[in-house]
Amino acid sequence: MRPAWFPVVLVVALAAALTFLTLPIVAIFVDSSPAQLVDALGERGALEALWLSLRTTAMALAIILIVGTPAAYLLATRSFRGKAVVVTLVELPLVLPPAVAGIALLAAVGPSGILGGAVEAAGIELALTTAGVVVALTFVASPFYVRQAMAAFAAVDRTLLDASRTLGASEARSFGRVMIPNAMPGLAAGTALALGRALGEFGATLMFAGSFQGITQTVPLAIYDRFSTEFDSALALSAVLVAVSAAILLSVKFVQGSEALGGAAS
């Protein structure tokens, strides 16, 4: 009998990965009792940070969906010269270190950035404001949605679109009635991924928008701020982020699961 060493290697690798990846998360909950968590969350600053995170993430997501959906549709359904370059540029923030994103935003639309004068002339203030947080979140999170949306649109059966067009529907109507509903699971998954990224954003926000309670101090910044003196409160906020992120991930799995089932059925 040949020794079955390969399956053992696989299982050991999985066990190692599992231990490494879950231990820190488990520690967050082990280190703090539920009562402590609730207490720490009752603190005004923590709730303010949560509320700010929710507001800014919602605004960023709205922008991402409104602009990203048609843009992804175009990239998924047309081919043109330089498309690969355009796709790469759109996806670039995905791999950019957050600190680079922060510096880049300051250099672009900060008060002394290349478009700083224009932004100021338009009466908009971004650096160190809540609007700046939204800009930072939109910048880092949009590629997660656009990528997923492109793949979702590209996967829609072209004959559906052709049928709709043959029946006399305009492209806009086909986009709304055929493409969006058929790409919905992918779009939802992309939305969830962008949501997760936006909620967790730290570096770009700190560098571009600063850290001020109620104005620019989102949950990750509040965690960092509390780390040195109010460890319990930092843990509590971390636990909330873990829970929310887990919920997002599960909903992605759920949506993708039903997508796969739908695919099998058709």
């Binding site: 900060g110 650096a127 160190l128 560098m207 600063g210 850290s211 620019t216």
Partner: peptide
């Protein structure tokens, strides 16, 4: 007039040199 409470002194310097504050 305080717009940002930075986690360290480098953060303050960065906000000033880049014109954000």
């Amino acid at each position: 007039n305080v717009r940002s409470n930075e986690p360290d002194v480098k953060g303050i310097v960065g906000k000033l040199t880049l014109g954000a504050a």
